[in-house]
Amino acid sequence: MLDLKNVSFRAESENGEIRIINDISLHLEPNKFIVITGPNGGGKSTLARLIAGISPISGGKIFFEGTDITEKSITERAKLGIGFAFQQPVRFKGLTVFDLLRIAAGKTISVSEACGYLSEVGLCAKDYIKREVNASLSGGELKRIEIATILARDVKLAIFDEPEAGIDLWSFKNLIRIFEKMQQSEGGRSILVISHQERILNIADEIIVLSEGSILRQGSREEILPDIIGTKYAADVCRKLSEEA
């Protein structure tokens, strides 16, 4: 499904070039639920942006379903079936929630279809459908709308960057249900979630621990999770793993 081959990302800073992603290779199987975890600043969001084509990679290659997408634009990758829910969703003056869902669906959709996506993320559709995606929405509301835009699309690989941030307990269960439902739907969907939450790690097929731009650990939940259990946050595991190393 997705293959990263020796992917690296460097950025310019005042103190010269900094390495943010170092020579990462990974292979994601279709129909799997993968969670990337690791400390703040470890490079998780950057890696997601590289996969979506938002930042250009400095070295290496990315393959999606066997096609080399390294040189492909954001739009082309989206059209191939890569979906990306941002860690910090963008606000738009003037565009409504319905507009955004319509754009995501890539075709004209009915209000009731749009409402369906909103209900799935636990928003009372009629209160939101006409609202502008602007500063008047709360952080949690915006996060849920961001998830709904992925549901409205027909994606093969869905990337969620810290979807649980700002989401309350009730919706948490709902969120997990959304992931399960996406995974069960036919067509070989894969889900890549960036998360610090044990409850999300708990349903992963595979866990990747990313720290300082490199993969520290990668393996099945059974292999990795026991090392993470007992730490308060998933991020703590890296300290523990680094100390052991």
Partner: peptide, 28 residues
């Protein structure tokens, strides 16, 4: 805002289409 264009491009719009949608919404 660049982030607005990028968001709509990740939903499958080209840059020009994204621009159009943002302007239409803004002037609605």
């Amino acid at each position: 805002a660049g982030e607005q264009l990028i968001k709509l491009m990740t939903l499958g719009l080209t840059e020009a289409e994204a621009e159009e949608q943002i302007i239409n919404g803004f002037l609605k």
